[in-house]
Amino acid sequence: MKTINNELRDKIIFAAQLVSISLIWLLVIGIIFWISNLIYLSVDLKDSPGISIGISLVAIPVFITLASILTYVFVGFHREKKKHLNTDSGN
């Protein structure tokens, strides 16, 4: 009984972690949408679009890199854990 509970608990916690890591991507996607909307506006209104595009070229990669680093760490940690469990059960 207790092991089942533990398993369920692990699953819930893992799901919560997945949700949190997708939240950061949600933020990044939101920011990309926002910035492209602003670029569209500035082109539409002929309101020096060059500046907007210049800023977006810097800003968007920064956010993507940040989210990628987090994802890299998350995936890196869990891949190792899985391997760990596999070797454990093998033994």
Partner: peptide
């Protein structure tokens, strides 16, 4: 500032860079 913002205004540069810094420093 989301629906009608001007990325050309220094205030929006601030919004962008503070968001980036906040995300980066939290991480």
């Amino acid at each position: 500032i989301f629906t009608a913002g001007r990325l050309q205004s220094p205030l929006l540069w601030d919004v962008t860079s503070i968001t980036a810094y906040f995300t980066a420093s939290t991480v």
